[in-house]
Design a protein around this nucleic acid. Structure first.
Length: 570
RNA sequence: GGCGCGGUAGCUCAGUUGGUUAGAGCGAUCGACUCAUAAUCGAUAGGUCGGGAGUUCAAGUCUCCCCCACGCCA
């Protein structure tokens, strides 16, 4: 038994995430966490909401709420939806938690002690009306080069010329439209990542088994141009973690907060404190401090490819820079994007399916199965309603659901709702057990290696073995001449249902529970020995015939959903 | 424009350090079965592995050039 710390990239607070976000981090992380728990390992699976920064402030303003209130509400919304998808976080924290405030300030203070923070004075555009400094993308004006009227502060989208906000003619705030902008001098803290470039490069180079997507992105940022750049870790905002040096004031930094990308990954650690403080566990340092027992912890992070630079460089730089014994990540599993029907998911255009909508139209297992079995591991993947309908109907309803249906109903009609007695296993059963054993080994190998699609394919093949067995041995024929053998075949089939419930639980936990309930057992132990596992339900054990495990998606439904989620064309 | 991940059967994808007739699932066609959610099981068809050149006894797998799609950056 090993100890596994697992974190999913923390979703931003300003709205409900779409299926692409889900399959890019939270869902595969949950799959892995559930699998490892089933195998008997000790798991701490953490996720949180990422709550700071300008977008949160703007979203709150748009909703007419105070930021703190807005974030609290949205956190609850996201937590509820995550629960709906069966995401089995040990704790779903908040980057705005007091624990994260203290830890972020402590880390910044420590980095300053280590000489890794420098102060930089710079000019930034300030909006008097908005009462805030404006990041480049919140400034628009007329391009001095081509006359395009909606050029952004950093670049003209029309002629692609690179701009400074001060170049713009008639600059205005995109937040309020205000034109009373002025340039003000402000001071910020920079993390001297460039000092840590060598250590980071060595560390990345030592990770030979990481996905190529992960290391190639890290190396690009490490080596491109002038190499890894120092990064500003503070902002002139109200909402965020106040800049302090540990528990001391930071002279000259009054009224400023840490940049969201500095405090967000630190929440991975703070979240463990929240977990303990919420009474869900004890001794959080045992998971995070190598001097307090975390040496034998294997830490795996899950994220979309857009998050890779922060997890391979910025956050490790923070941790290494402290020279304190914090746990560094052991394995980063990164994902490409899921596209929606030939394009991108789009929040602003309402294009694609969002997590709350998905749960409105179908149970979570449908989504879990399809998304995981098509996880964008090697390249971007594509969601289409045709494929979704076809795959889900075939895999879940026809292959697995119908297997359960045919064997339970056959047993009920011939033997009643108890495991029938009689008969002995022979060559066919021996062959089935051998095939199952081989596939189980492959399945475990793929799950251990977090090869999500391959694991799904192997699990499906395990389901198919059940149908093959029934088809080849035809208890409905056997019973006419040899009722004892038919009883043995049915007994085996019913035990297969329990086995499938156990093996499938990481992918489709709800269906798995329905199956265990129907078999009237709570024996969900992962099988060491397939032959033994197929005798777990003994002769005479009562069961019930469950309702159809998965109903099929109809053509009308598919067509309706395709239209409903197509979004506004522009 | 620079960089990155890709471009393998109609569709979604596997293809280890280059090595026998390039694989799987779905879809299609045919057949078997009739316990079951018009389900299942089997068989068959289908690919000059984006294009070209090269290295090699041997290349989907290495090298170079080009094309296409997507993404990131400036």
């Amino acid at each position: 038994m090993a100890r596994h710390l697992i974190t999913s990239a923390i979703p931003y607070i300003n709205g409900i995430k779409h299926l692409g976000n889900l399959v890019g981090s939270q869902l595969p992380a949950d799959l892995y966490a559930r699998y490892l728990r089933s195998r008997g390992h000790e798991v701490l699976f953490l996720c949180a909401t990422d709550e700071h920064g300008t977008p949160a402030e703007l979203a709150a303003a748009k909703a007419g709420k105070a930021v703190a209130e807005y974030c609290a509400e949205m956190h609850d919304v996201q937590a509820r939806i995550a629960d709906g998808f069966g995401l089995s976080f040990d704790h779903f924290g908040r980057s705005s938690s007091p624990q994260n405030h203290r830890l972020t300030q402590a880390m910044a203070g420590r980095l300053a002690e280590m000489g890794l923070i420098r102060e930089v004075t710079e000019d930034q555009v300030y909006s008097v009306t908005d009462g805030r400094f404006l990041p480049d993308r919140y400034i628009e004006g007329t391009c001095p080069n081509c006359g395009f009227e909606s050029a952004r502060g950093d670049q003209c989208d029309n002629c692609t010329k690179q701009l400074d906000p001060t170049d713009l003619i008639n600059p205005r705030s995109t937040i309020s439209g205000a034109t009373d902008l002025e340039v003000r001098t402000t001071k910020h803290l920079y993390l001297r990542q460039s000092e840590l470039k060598g250590a980071l490069a060595d560390w990345i180079d030592s990770k030979k088994d990481w996905p190529i997507l992960t290391t190639s992105i890290a190396k690009k940022w490490l080596n491109d141009g002038d190499g890894l750049q120092d990064r500003g870790i503070t902002r002139d905002l109200d909402w965020g973690i106040p800049v302090r040096k540990g528990d001391q004031d930071w002279p000259g930094m009054e009224g400023k907060v840490f940049y969201v990308w500095f405090d967000a990954p630190i929440e991975y650690i703070a979240c463990a404190q929240e977990w303990q403080d919420a009474g869900k566990g004890a001794d959080w340092k045992r998971w995070w401090r190598t001097d307090k027992g975390a040496d034998d912890v294997r830490y795996t992070q899950f994220m979309g490819k857009d998050n890779v630079p922060f997890h391979t460089l910025s956050f490790p730089a923070t941790i290494m820079g402290t020279q304190e014994p914090w746990k560094l990540v052991d394995y980063i599993k990164s994902f490409n994007y899921l596209n929606y029907d030939g394009g991108q998911f789009s929040t602003s255009r309402g294009r694609g399916v969002f997590m709350d909508q998905a749960l409105e139209i179908l149970p979570s297992d449908y989504w879990r199965w399809w998304l995981l079995s098509h996880a964008p591991e090697t390249s971007d993947a594509e969601f289409t309603w045709d494929a979704f309908q076809q795959d889900v109907n075939k895999d879940l309803a026809d292959v697995l659901g119908n297997f359960v249906s045919r064997i339970t109903k056959f047993c009920r009609s011939k033997f009643g709702e108890t495991i029938p007695a009689g008969g002995t296993q022979g060559a066919a059963e021996e062959a089935l057990i051998a095939a199952l054993t081989q596939r189980l080994t492959a399945y475990q190998g793929h799950m251990d290696g977090i090869e999500v699609r391959k694991a799904a394919a192997e699990l499906r093949a395990i389901w198919v073995l059940g149908n093959e067995y029934l088809q080849a041995n035809a208890p409905w024929t056997t019973i006419k001449t040899d009722p004892d053998t038919a009883a043995m075949q049915v007994r085996l089939g019913l035990n297969l249902i329990r086995l499938y419930a156990v093996l499938s639980a990481p992918f489709i936990p709800d269906a798995s529970k329905v199956l265990l309930d129907a078999m009237q057992t709570d024996d969900a132990a992962w099988p060491d020995d397939i032959g033994a596992a197929l005798t777990a339900l003994p002769t005479g054990h009562a069961f019930t015939v469950p309702d159809n495990l998965f109903r099929k998606i109809t053509d009308d439904e598919r067509a309706g959903w395709a239209e409903r989620f197509a979004g506004v064309r522009t």
